[in-house]
Amino acid sequence: MLKNVFLGISILFVLIYFSASILYDTKYVVYIKPVIIPAFICYAFCAFKERLNSHYLIFVFFFYAGEIGILFMEQSPIMYKFGLLFYFFSYLSLINLAYPYIKFVNLIKEIKLYSFFIFLLLTVLLVFILKIIFDSEIDFYLNTIIVLNALSAIFLVVTAFILLQEIFNRKTVYYFFGVFCIFFSDVISAVNFYLLDDFYLNLLERVLHFSGFFLFYLFIIQKEENKFS
Rank of each mutant, 00 (worst) to 15 (best):
Glu67Asn: 11
Glu67Thr: 04
Gly66Arg: 03
Ile95Ala: 09
Thr172Tyr: 07
Phe119Tyr: 10
Tyr174His: 11
Val173Met: 00
Tyr91Ala: 12
Asn143Thr: 01
Tyr99Phe: 05
Ala150Arg: 03
Asp186Ser: 11
Gly66Leu: 12
Leu156Pro: 13
Ile182Arg: 14
Thr144Asn: 12
Phe89Ser: 06
Leu84Lys: 08
Gly69Thr: 09
Ile182Gly: 15
Phe128Tyr: 10
Tyr194Thr: 03
Phe116Ala: 05
Phe86Tyr: 05
Val157Gly: 09
Asp135Asn: 15
Leu125Val: 12
Asp198Phe: 15
Leu107Ile: 03
Tyr91Asn: 11
Leu142Phe: 01
Tyr87Trp: 14
Asp186Met: 08
Leu164Trp: 01
Ile132Glu: 15
Leu130Glu: 06
Cys181Phe: 13
Ser152Pro: 13
Ala150Ile: 10
Leu156Asn: 06
Gln75Gly: 05
Phe89Tyr: 08
Phe180Pro: 08
Met79Trp: 15
Glu67Leu: 14
Phe177Val: 15
Leu125Ala: 15
Leu121Arg: 03
Gly178Met: 07
Ile133Trp: 05
Asp198Lys: 10
Phe177Asn: 13
Glu137Val: 13
Met73Gly: 08
Tyr80Trp: 07
Arg170Ser: 05
Lys103Gly: 00
Phe183Pro: 09
Phe183Gly: 15
Met79Leu: 11
Ala153Asp: 15
Ser185Met: 13
Ile111Asp: 00
Phe180Ala: 03
Ala150Phe: 06
Glu110Phe: 11
Phe116Asn: 09
